[in-house]
Simulated scan of single mutants.
Amino acid sequence: MMTYQQPQQVQAVIFDWAGTVVDFGSFAPTQIFVEAFAEFGMQVSLEEARGPMGMGKWDHIRTLCNVPEIAERYKAKFGRTPSDEDVTAIYERFMPLQIEKIAEHSALIPGALEVISTLKSTGVKVGSCSGYPKVVMDKVVELAAKNGYMADCVVATDEVPNGRPHPAQSLANVIALGVSDVAACVKVDDTWPGIVEGRSAGMWTVALTCSGNALGLTYEQFKQLPADKLQAERERIEAMFSDSRPHYMIDTIVDLPEVLADINRRLSNGEMPQSS
């Protein structure tokens, strides 16, 4: 007879990339959407482009094209609402632009390297996944390695049958890393599709409110925000995340160690991610 034994501590942390470990403010993906649409004579604002962030990029473009205001702009220009073929055309313009621009926003988020080094030194595995397809991810990974960051596993959105908010990318990490139980995993992300992904995979989830897409500021701008303005922004972003039900919400990756200590405490008390 085999007895199910609940994990007692975290075995792996699965990180998103842009807005989580690299590219404070998540500028690389968003700026390119604006530019790709512009090449088709279409105006899409940075704020609009940030809306579906976290999804795979083709799905992101499809979602943007479904926004009534954007669909109307497209119709005014081309006489029809965007078809899947039109989405693919925009996506195919987006990809080379993305690869070209990725280096401009490849800096590691302050404190990320220290947190991840500590995890690795304590035997916790470091997984990762992204809304980027593999052709972009390869470049992101190469640039991060030059800055000293190497994840134990990288899963791009086009390496699984379904991208976020489906759980496939996180679960591919579980398999590759040899983790014994999904409840021993923590998904860290700055977007709601990434949090739903972790939730759906049966993991603990940690939403980052200030380093990513939702705040959309540079590190310097974030640091200069007056306390009352920062608090108001936190509350706005926490409300945005609430439906995805993250277990924890913190400003940036720097605040992760305390969260992991709390998850270890909860696991050793018999708590599971699905029960809260």
Rank of each mutant, 00 (worst) to 15 (best):
P226A: 06
R266Y: 06
D255H: 12
R234T: 08
G194Y: 00
L215A: 13
D190T: 07
S211I: 04
W192Y: 15
D243F: 02
V206I: 06
P226I: 03
M249H: 02
D190Q: 05
H247W: 10
L260D: 09
N264G: 14
Y219W: 11
L267S: 09
S211E: 02
L256R: 05
P273F: 03
Q231N: 10
S200P: 14
E238L: 03
L260W: 14
L267V: 10
P246W: 00
L260V: 13
D251M: 14
Q231L: 09
V196I: 07
A239K: 13
G194V: 08
M240T: 11
R245E: 06
A207Q: 05
G216I: 03
H247I: 07
E233T: 12
M203P: 14
Y219K: 11
M240D: 13
P257L: 03
G212I: 13
G270S: 02
S275R: 07
M203W: 07
I250E: 02
E271H: 10
G212K: 14
V259K: 05
R234G: 09
K223A: 10
Q224K: 13
D190Y: 04
L230V: 11
R199N: 03
C210N: 09
L208P: 01
E238R: 01
R245N: 05
R234K: 12
I237R: 01
L260C: 14
F222S: 00
C210W: 04
A239R: 09
P273G: 07
S244I: 00
A227L: 02
E197G: 10
R234W: 09
R265P: 02
G198T: 07
R199A: 01
E238K: 02
I195L: 00
S276C: 13
W192F: 14
E233L: 11
E235G: 10
A227W: 02
V259D: 11
P273A: 06
F222V: 00
G212E: 14
E233S: 15
L267Q: 09
V196D: 00
E220F: 06
R266A: 07
D228C: 08
V206M: 03
G198R: 00
G194R: 00
E235T: 10
Q224F: 09
E271Y: 09
A214V: 04
L217G: 12
W192C: 11
A232W: 03
K223R: 10
C210L: 08
L217S: 11
F241H: 08
A227Q: 05
I237M: 00
G198V: 07
D189K: 00
A201K: 01
D243G: 04
N264A: 10
D228T: 10
L215W: 02
T191H: 05
D255C: 06
R266W: 06
L217F: 03
D243R: 01
D228Q: 13
L217C: 11
V254F: 15
S242Q: 15
E197K: 04
N264Y: 10
Q231R: 11
L230P: 13
Q221E: 15
Q274C: 08
A261C: 11
M249N: 02
E258I: 03
E238I: 04
G216W: 01
L217V: 13
R266I: 08
M203F: 10
G194D: 06
Y219H: 13
V259T: 15
G202Y: 07
G194H: 05
T218L: 08
Q221A: 15
G194F: 04
A227Y: 03
S242L: 15
G194N: 10
D228F: 07
L217P: 04
E271W: 06
P273T: 05
V259P: 01
K229V: 13
I250F: 00
M240P: 09
R265K: 07
